[in-house]
Design a protein around this nucleic acid. Sequence first.
DNA 1: TGTGAAAGAAAGTCCAT
DNA 2: ATGGACTTTCTTTCACA
Lengths: 163, 163
Amino acid sequence: MTERPDLDEIDRRILRELQADGRIRINELADRVGISHPNCLRRVRALRSSGVIKAIRATIDERRLGYEVVSFVTIQLESQHQTALGAFEAAIMPLPWVQQCWRISGDADFLLKCVSTGVEGMSRQLRQFAALPGVRAIRSFPSLGQSKDEPLPIPGHGDGAPG
Amino acid sequence: MTERPDLDEIDRRILRELQADGRIRINELADRVGISHPNCLRRVRALRSSGVIKAIRATIDERRLGYEVVSFVTIQLESQHQTALGAFEAAIMPLPWVQQCWRISGDADFLLKCVSTGVEGMSRQLRQFAALPGVRAIRSFPSLGQSKDEPLPIPGHGDGAPG
DNA sequence: TGTGAAAGAAAGTCCAT
DNA sequence: ATGGACTTTCTTTCACA
């Protein structure tokens, strides 16, 4: 929320560690990045309150919770006006099985990540999308599994230039 | 990794809390879910080592790190044989700007989430994908922002049935 | 900023149930 | 599998350099 203009190398190291293990102890973290504990604590707090760190959360195995199907869905609306886009977002907001919604450009207006307990659930969801006002086209991409999930590359050591 | 067949209501509460705040203290967590600290600690460890909790990590604001563009890319290969799919996955594995890769079915074989410092970087990435062997079709969906990002719905109180 | 100290809180261990 | 008591270890703040 607050502004935090420039991150130095220490901050970037902190971010790397926190992406690898969000529950790392402040002491351990301070040792790894090479600063004192109090300073490290201050920096972590600043990074969190400034919004550079959006959140620290557990990610859960969908299947172990009974969600057998993860699917991606692109949605194209009939109109790309703010009101139509906003109305769609408002409509999917209360649906708990829509985990993520991204506004995109290209052949569609939204990309959604959905979870369901089975294929019946998935097709029910697609019908529900189709019933929303202003929806022109729906494309569904059931996931067969995730083959890569890496933290954000953080420039500054040997992480490879981002391009 | 180890098997952990059934989660009880306490476990589900723990998962909810840990999705909301991955750095919550064991004591606080124990209070919230209504069990003792040692028991809570045991459960959290079990959930982590059994793989129900895949990870606890910080998520970082891409823009604050200089990534102005987040884009989704679908890739269709010429062949859907294991060898071709595996080769593609191996090829994108070392690319740090490919943050996620999902195997999908539908009009494409893979859905990628990519980050770059600007539109030039993005088009460079697309050219790089096009140069990979066996790539038939590429579709790019530059993101205009994320409008929803919610934790996995965990059944068991008023979270709404997942369908 | 780093250092060291010191209070307070939490984590981790063991045991009885 | 659980909660209680205990010991050890962290977190957090502060004064000082």
